[in-house]
Write a protein that binds this DNA or RNA. Structure first.
Length: 413
RNA sequence: CGGGGCGUGGUGUCAACGGUAGCACGAGUGAUUUGGGAUCAUUUAGACAGGGUUCGAAUCCCUGCGCCCCGACCA
C-alpha cells in the first residue's frame, strides 16, 4: 500500500471527547472512527489489525477442533423466553427491535440459545459429541456506560465458541483443551506473561465459577487478586474466605491488581440444552442431557488492550504478528529507489506501507512513530551514500544501515 | 441508572466583561524547503437543537440531545 493513496490521515491532536489512550492514539493514527459513544468504525489500518487478531484466534480455535460458522444478529424472542432470558429484568442490556407487523426481535448480545436451536437439527446421538462451534461476530449490548475506547463498547467484535459434550467428563476435557488454546492466543499476541486465568462469578448460568482471562493493566475495570506463583487469580466479586478455601488459595499469597477481561469461559451444564429440549440418545437408547460450555474472546477489546499497553509517548507500537504492515518504508526524496525496494519486498510477500508522500521528513517520521509499524526503513540520499537503507525497529531507538538483502535476511528470522 | 463536568470551523483551544466570533492545526492555491510535524503569502470554514430573558446572547435561564469522568451495573 502506498501512503499517498491511503485515504486516512494522521492528526496531531487527539479529539477532546476521548480520554482513553487506546482511543486517542487509534483515532489520531487513523485506525478507527468514532461513530458514537462505544461504537467505532474500523478504517483500513484498523481493519488490518483486527483481521490479524481474528486470524490468530481462528487458527487456535481450529486447532482444538472448533468449526467456524456465523449465526444471525436478529433473534426470535421465543427461544429466549424458553430459557427465561428475554425479560429485561433478567438481562437488561438487550437491544430490541420490532418487525413491521409488531413482532419483537432481539439484537444478538450472545448466542447460547440460537446455537442450541441451530444445532438441534443435527445433534441426536452420543456419537455426535463432543464438538465445538464458534463464530467471530459483532455483538450488541446496551451498556449503561460505554467507556475507555475499544475496551467497553456497545457494538464490538467477539469470538464466541460453544461446546457440546455427552457428560461432565467429556466436557471437562474439552474445556481444559480450550483454556490452553486461549493461552496460546494470548501468548501469540504478546500478552501471555501478564494474562491470568481468574476465577469469577458464573453469573446466572451456573453455580460453578467461570474462568476469566485477565490481562493486567491499570486501565482495567476489574479488581483481581493474583497468585503469581500459581499463575492464577481470583476476581474481587467472589473474593471470600469460603471461596479461597474452595479454590485452594491463600490470602497471603495474593496481590491485588487491576485487569482487563480479555476472555471468559463458562460451564453451562445442561441449562440451555434442557430448557430448549435438546437431548441425545446414549448407547442404550436412553435420553440424556447435553453438557455445554461457552467461551468468549473480545477481539476488538484485545485490539484496544494491545494499543493501550504497548504504546509509548510517540504513538502505537504493534507486535509484529498483528501490525497493519510489517514494514514502513519512508522515502525521503528518493521515490524512484523506494519504489524499487517496495516492489522487491512485495514480491517476497512482505506487507509494506510506502510513504511516498510529498511531505517533510519530520512529518514522515512522526507519522511512522504514531502508526507503529514494527520496522521503519528509510531511504534517502544519506542512506544511499552509506550504502543502503536505514532500518529501525519501532520499539528500539537504534537504527542500522544495511542492504536490502541484509534486511530481507533479518525479516526471515 | 445516581452523581459530576462539558458542548465555538474538519481538529484543538484554561480566545473573547452580555456589545466586531480570535488564534493554531488541517484543507486549497503559489513560492521556498527536504533527516524529526519547516517558512512566507493567500483562500477556506464555526456557536449542538429548540425556546426564554435582553436594545443586543457563544456568554444568563429552561427543555431536549450528545460527549467525557466517578459510582452502580456488566452474557
Amino acid at each position: 500500500m502506498k501512503q499517498s493513496q491511503l485515504f486516512t490521515k494522521t492528526k496531531k491532536d487527539a479529539p477532546s471527547d476521548e480520554v482513553a489512550k487506546n482511543a486517542q492514539l487509534l483515532i489520531r493514527a487513523g485506525f478507527i472512527h468514532k461513530e458514537m459513544a462505544g461504537v467505532y468504525a474500523y478504517m483500513p489500518l484498523g481493519l488490518r489489525v483486527l483481521e490479524n487478531i481474528k486470524k490468530i484466534v481462528r487458527e487456535e480455535m481450529n486447532g482444538v477442533g472448533g468449526q467456524e460458522l456465523m449465526m444471525t444478529t436478529l433473534q426470535p424472542k421465543e427461544i429466549w423466553e424458553k430459557t427465561d432470558r428475554w425479560d429485561d429484568a433478567k438481562v437488561d442490556n438487550w437491544f430490541k427491535t420490532k418487525l413491521v407487523n409488531g413482532t419483537e426481535l432481539g439484537v444478538g448480545l450472545t448466542h447460547e440459545e440460537p446455537i442450541v436451536d441451530a444445532v438441534s437439527n443435527y445433534l441426536g446421538s452420543y456419537k455426535d459429541m463432543p464438538f465445538a462451534v464458534y463464530q467471530i461476530q459483532n455483538k450488541f449490548r446496551n451498556e449503561k456506560r460505554a467507556k475507555s475506547g475499544l475496551l467497553r463498547g456497545r457494538e464490538f467484535l467477539m469470538k464466541d465458541m460453544y461446546t457440546f459434550s455427552r457428560d461432565q467428563k467429556q466436557h471437562e476435557e474439552e474445556y481444559e483443551k480450550i483454556v490452553k488454546a486461549y493461552f496460546r492466543v494470548y501468548d501469540r499476541l504478546g500478552l501471555g506473561e501478564i494474562t491470568y486465568r481468574t476465577y469469577a462469578d458464573g453469573g446466572i448460568f451456573t453455580p460453578r465459577f467461570s474462568d476469566e482471562f485477565q490481562t493486567l493493566s491499570e486501565v482495567g475495570e476489574d479488581k483481581i487478586y493474583v497468585d503469581e506463583k500459581k499463575k492464577i487469580a481470583i476476581n474481587d466479586e467472589i473474593f471470600t474466605d469460603e471461596n479461597l478455601e474452595k479454590l485452594g488459595l491463600k490470602r497471603e499469597d495474593l496481590v491485588e491488581k487491576k485487569g482487563v477481561e480479555v476472555g471468559n469461559t463458562f460451564h453451562l451444564e445442561s441449562k440451555y440444552t434442557d430448557a430448549l429440549e435438546l437431548f441425545y440418545s446414549d448407547e442404550k437408547g436412553e435420553k440424556q442431557s447435553i453438557i455445554m460450555g461457552c467461551y468468549g474472546i473480545g477481539v476488538s477489546r484485545l485490539m484496544g488492550v494491545i494499543a493501550e499497553l504497548f504504546a509509548d509517548d510517540k504513538g502505537l507500537v504493534w507486535p509484529e504478528n498483528i501490525a497493519p504492515f510489517s514494514v514502513h518504508l519512508l522515502s525521503l526524496g528518493e521515490n524512484e529507489e523506494a519504489e524499487k525496494i517496495y516492489a522487491q519486498l512485495l514480491e517476497k510477500g512482505i506487507e509494506v506501507l510506502l510513504d511516498n508522500r510529498e511531505v517533510q521528513a519530520g512529518e514522515k517520521f512522526a507519522d511512522s512513530d504514531l502508526i507503529g509499524i514494527p520496522y521503519r526503513v528509510v531511504i534517502s540520499k544519506k542512506t544511499l551514500a552509506a550504502g543502503g537503507i536505514e532500518v529501525k525497529k519501532r520499539n528500539e531507538s537504534e537504527s542500522k544501515i544495511m542492504t536490502v538483502e541484509e534486511f530481507l535476511q533479518l525479516l526471515k528470522k
